[in-house]
């Protein structure tokens, strides 16, 4: 039997990775740097950006505000997905937060500093209560109801003319300045990304993750999973209702567009493209797709078609998403090694 020599790619974990994915064995400063440098770049970049107003111009500052808004919605989606719930209507959370803040500001003349936190918490509560009945069910029900809710909210506001009807509510109090707005939303986004990441490393987060894997065994471990899912929905709703409340004051307007499909499909596409299950992925996805969508502004609703197609390509063809791919590349060597092939082998 004559041996032929073939080549194959071999993947090796870098030395700093030990045993499981989240335990690192660090021994030198270089390795520490290797671990934290990507985070430092992201945080520093985002914190410095608002200072560069003169270079970037108001337009791109606004783009970053919207990007962070979508990133927050995508983070919210990703948290829900981590518990096994697929939301097809992130716009519900966004719209509820937006309308509550608008209502509080217009009816009671409260400043944004008060209305935004109130709308965030109350909005999340309202959404959790709305969705609670579906949490008992497995499978597609959550997706169906989240899809239906924003459309029906739009319809109710249209027909009953409550909350400003089709006109919406305008002239709401503004945030002090664009730089402050930027700092607020960037900080919140970073807190959410790292906070969620940390949350899922705790034992509590482990239970949430386990519900997606096998809800039956979680019940058999003595957990009331409806209650846990409700908590997850509440936590997930917070960044999304905040995003709605924040953008309402940013635009000084709230109307039916707060429930528009854009706020459902863009976060969904961001999270899927970035890689579901890794909160950094959701953020990465938003920072890729939203600026892209600004560049394509002239295309009108064709943009939604494009997101849908991107979404489809990723969910069908590249379900892993970009972030886990990049992360793997970052933490692994690849090298070509030779191997002996037996006769008749491939």
């Amino acid at each position: 039997m004559s041996a032929k020599v073939g080549y194959r790619k071999e993947r090796l974990d870098r030395g700093i990775k030990a045993r499981t994915d989240d335990i690192f064995a660090i021994s030198t400063y270089r390795e520490i740097l290797y671990l934290i440098l990507p985070r430092v770049f992201v945080i520093a970049g985002l914190l410095i950006f608002p200072l560069l107003g003169d270079f970037t111009g108001v337009y791109w500052q606004n783009v970053i505000v919207i990007t962070c808004t979508i990133a927050l919605l995508a983070l919210s989606w990703d948290l829900l997905h981590s518990v096994g719930l697929v939301s097809l209507g992130q716009a519900v959370f966004f719209g509820v937060g937006a309308y509550i803040t608008g209502f509080l500001a217009q009816q009671f003349g409260l400043p944004p500093l008060v209305t935004i936190p109130l709308a965030t918490v109350f909005g999340a509560l309202v959404c959790t209560m709305l969705l609670y009945p579906v949490l008992r069910l497995r499978g597609v029900y959550f997706g169906l109801i989240t899809f239906a809710l924003p459309l029906l909210f739009m319809r109710i506001i249209e027909t009953t003319k409550v909350l400003g009807g089709t006109e919406g509510m305008s002239g709401l109090p503004a945030l002090p300045s664009i730089a402050i707005s930027l700092y607020i939303i960037i900080t919140i986004t970073l807190v959410c990304v790292f906070g969620f990441q940390r949350l899922f490393e705790t034992d509590y987060g482990l239970v949430l993750k386990a519900i997606k894997d096998n809800d039956r065994s979680v019940i058999a471990a003595g957990f009331n999973i409806s209650w846990f899912k409700a908590q997850a929905v509440f936590i997930a709703a917070l960044p999304a209702t905040f995003a709605g409340a924040f953008l309402t004051h940013h635009y000084q307007f709230v109307g039916i567009p707060a429930f528009a499909t854009d706020y459902s499909i863009l976060p969904l596409a961001s999270a899927i493209v970035g890689g579901p299950g890794s909160f950094f992925g959701a953020m990465l996805g938003a920072f890729l797709l939203v600026p892209l969508s600004e560049l394509l502004r002239d295309l009108g609703t064709l943009r939604i078609v494009i997101y849908s197609v991107i979404l489809l390509i990723f969910v069908v063809g590249l379900p892993e998403g970009l972030y886990p791919y990049l992360r793997r590349k970052y933490f692994q060597f690849e090298r070509v090694v030779s191997m002996e092939l037996e006769e008749g082998g491939k």
């Binding site: 499909t261 499909i265 979404l311």
Partner: peptide, 14 residues
């Protein structure tokens, strides 16, 4: 199931 829902949703919206 979760991916199926997302995929058909994407097709419908598109």
């Amino acid at each position: 199931h979760l991916s199926e829902v997302i995929a058909t949703f994407a097709v419908g919206v598109a």
